[in-house]
Design a protein around this nucleic acid. Structure first.
Length: 708
RNA sequence: GGGCGUUUAGCUCAGUGGUUAGAGCGCUCCGUUCACAUCGGAGAGGUCGCAGGUCCGAUCCCUGCAACGCCCACCA
């Protein structure tokens, strides 16, 4: 053996050997394997390069798959790649901006073609990066979220939802991003704390409060709580003439319990077109709604002299006009509140009422809740079950329309007369089925979660594929904990709705990987660690084990280069243990593969072998319980501080000065302990263990060795 | 405004109802003769956040408090 373990030369060679062996594919695994074990890889976004989060998920999933494979399961790990709709389009728009171009000046087909080329080249790059991390996934089954069959099936689901009455086209209030010119779901927005002035205006006999005077032009309803005695003299529906921004108007009093009597004056005017609360009030009382702001954030003609102004510039001028008219009562500076912003550009969301497709969530959420209540899915750690349940109990109808080109087209026709829509997968609808009016093609695309929510079904060839019958439901879904509400619920209810069963039996959540001081890695802080730099320097095995030890499910971890270096020393240690044993192989040793079983019987009574059996039991139990950190730590401790420090040291005497028979026995013991250790370490540190294994057992491969 | 998590050695973190509470890194001293200086040996360093409670016994279970962090949220 070489004096040093050269990970840079070894890793690509070993990976190629694995890939050629066909062992990543359950169909070509040796032996009879009746029991399947399946993991669907969360498809990485094909719009960037690998970060440590990817390295973590590859490591955890690969541990589970390798463990299952060694235990004789029909192990399948399906890789994928995500076109990542809005995410990717934004990445590409930034590229365009750098080149001084804009998507709004491009033909949609042109833009789509460019993003596709960009995504496909990134996809190949990422696949190779995942290979370099040692992922033993079945590349022959890889899926891309824009594969034709995925597109077709996603569109069929759309129609099925429609036929089942779970889908409707509605004029409803949506989150609109002025920069990106698309609507966004609630999970694509964030709240940001801000301080703004809060104005009180005279509105006829009322004083109303607002932080957004620029939306107040169309306000002709003043809402108070039905139990508010201050306003008891006003009746629901009562008309009041009053002077407002651009002249006299007729206002109507509305009584609604959504009003918080203790806030402001307890009276507010509403702008249903641009505020979700106001929209709901207007819906309840069947009030008029009209737009004040256009999709570019500019005031419409209803604003009179302010028409065409951006809302930011208009605000101060409107306040000034109201002050001049004597309608400004007072201003509270520093009013603290949270505003909804676009999660990508952090610009304030301007709610708009738009015609979009919505999925009725209640029936689907109930399916998910029932399955979880029946314990059909285990959450690890289990506290995430509560989070999941909370989300499913508080769903709003899901807006699946996106005004971007990069995605799966919504196969529908929209009536130009009545605005209604109808699914049309065959492009056969020529007139509105409702009113007979002319129709146009829907140019929107699906929210990316609409298709990725069906991912486990898609990759297994739902509904009639062979894999679907064998491998669905899958065993484990391993993902980052922030997907507990973005992605996991959608997979669960689509699985139940379409296939009648949960998509996976266990969800394992990993946490964030932070920098050495527990701070979140971010480009702006400059503390981002590139996992491939680390594997180049210290080896993939070192990075993998350093991501596992001390990192229990659901918790965040801190990762430093020092730590990885420390675990690199561990692979060196393993290498040197092997080298020492190999150097002490007696000439003509009987410890060949053929005699090994016989020797094992002889060795079984040896206390060191018994100790190893105990360890194996422990490690097995920990892996089965998803306690990879404990399994890894115990192995580390055993190999270094027992096998190397104690057993080998104790055997040195016999090896040096013993009789041939003693030397033989000593060697066989050490070799058995080494090989036993390699097996258990293999899921965690696949490269160095495979390399050493093949030195001792030429012609065989550790990846398919039986676990026990 | 809700909910959750964390608080253990200088740093980053594991862990356990029961003798001396662990790991990596860092630190101190010693050691290069034949597995390994990418190392070995020896060692320093902890009132396990605070206050109560349950228990024969609590770092671990319960209650309260504090600090930090995260998630959610239609008070205009």
């Amino acid at each position: 053996m070489e004096t040093r373990y050269d990970h840079e030369k070894t890793e690509p060679r070993i990976y190629a050997q694995w890939e050629q062996s066909g062992y990543f594919n359950p169909d070509t695994l040796p032996g009879d394997r009746p029991e399947p074990f399946t993991i669907v890889m969360p498809p990485p976004n094909s719009n960037g390069s690998l970060h440590v989060g990817h390295a973590l998920f590859v490591t955890l999933q690969d541990i589970m798959i390798r463990f299952a494979r060694m235990r004789g399961k029909k192990a399948l790990w399906i890789p994928g790649a995500d076109h990542a709709g809005f995410e990717t389009q934004i990445v590409y728009e930034r590229e365009l901006e750098k080149q001084g171009r804009s998507r709004f000046a491009m033909k949609p087909e042109e833009l789509y073609k460019e993003i596709l080329a960009f995504t496909l080249s990134n996809k190949t790059y990422m696949e190779n990066q995942i290979r370099s991390l040692g992922a033993s996934c079945d590349w022959s089954r890889e899926k891309f979220t824009l594969d034709p069959d995925v597109v077709r099936k996603t569109q069929q689901t759309f129609r099925r939802l429609y036929d089942d009455g779970l889908l409707y086209r509605g004029k409803r209030i949506v989150n609109w991003c002025v920069k990106h010119q698309t609507s966004l779901s609630d999970v694509e927005t964030e709240f940001k704390d801000r301080k703004d002035p809060f104005y009180y205006f005279t509105y006829g006999p009322f004083t109303i409060g607002t932080a957004r005077p620029e939306t107040k032009f169309g306000d002709k309803y003043v809402v108070v709580h039905p139990a508010d005695e201050r306003y008891a003299q006003f009746k629901d529906g009562q008309k009041i003439e009053l002077e407002w921004i651009n002249g006299p108007i007729t206002a109507t009093v509305v009584k609604d319990e959504a009003i918080d009597m203790s806030f402001g004056t307890g009276a507010m005017t509403i702008t249903p077109w641009h505020d979700p609360v106001d929209f709901e009030i207007a819906e309840r009382h069947k009030l008029d709604k009209e737009p004040i702001i256009d999709l570019h954030g500019k005031l419409l003609p209803i604003a009179g002299e302010f028409a065409g102004m951006k809302i930011d510039e208009a605000r101060a001028k409107i306040v000034e006009k109201l002050r001049a008219k004597g309608l400004l009562v007072k201003t509270d500076e520093d009013y603290e509140h949270a505003v909804r912003v676009c999660y990508k550009c952090e610009r304030v969301i301007e709610p708009q009422v738009l015609d979009q497709w919505f999925v009725k969530m209640k029936p689907l959420a109930d399916l998910a809740l029932k399955a979880v209540a029946e314990k059909k899915i285990a959450f690890i750690p289990d506290r995430f079950e509560k989070v999941f349940t909370y989300w499913m109990e508080h769903t709003l109808d899901w807006n699946i329309s996106r005004q971007i080109v990069w995605g799966i087209p919504i196969p529908a026709k929209i009536c130009e007369r009545c605005g209604d829509g109808v699914p049309d997968l065959e492009d056969a609808v020529t007139a509105c089925p409702k009113c007979g009016g002319p129709v146009r093609k829907d140019t929107d695309t699906f929210d990316t979660w609409f298709s990725s929510g069906q991912w486990p079904l898609m990759v297994l060839g739902y509904p009639d594929g062979r894999d679907f019958k064998t491998f669905y439901p899958t065993d484990v879904m391993e993902t980052a904990y922030d997907l507990v509400f973005k992605w996991i619920p959608r997979m669960v209810f689509f699985g139940l709705y379409l296939a009648g069963d949960v998509p996976f039996r266990t969800v394992y959540f990993h946490g964030l990987v932070n920098d050495a001081h527990g701070k979140k890695m971010s480009k702006s802080k400059g503390n981002v660690m590139n996992p491939l730099d680390m594997t180049a320097k210290y080896g993939t095995d070192a990075l993998r084990i350093s991501l596992v030890v001390g990192n229990p499910a659901g918790s965040e971890m801190s990762l430093s280069e020092d730590r990885i270096r420390g675990y690199r020393n561990f692979s060196t240690k393993i290498w040197n243990i092997a080298r020492f044993i190999e150097m002490n192989r007696p000439a003509g040793s009987t410890a060949t593969k053929e005699s090994f079983k016989k020797d094992e019987t002889m060795l079984a009574k040896n206390p060191h072998m018994q100790r190893m059996a105990e360890l194996r039991k422990d490690v097995t139990a920990h892996i089965e319980a998803f306690e990879f950190h404990l399994a890894a730590e115990k192995l580390y401790h055993y190999v270094w501080h027992e096998l190397a420090d104690k057993v080998i040291e104790a055997e040195k005497g016999r090896l040096r000065d013993g009789s041939p028979a003693e030397r033989e026995e000593s060697y066989e013991l050490l070799e058995a302990l080494l090989l036993g250790s390699l097996k258990m370490l293999h899921p965690f540190m696949p490269f160095v263990t495979e390399e050493i294994w093949q030195i001792f057992r030429p012609g065989t491969m550790l990846i398919v060795e039986p676990w026990e």
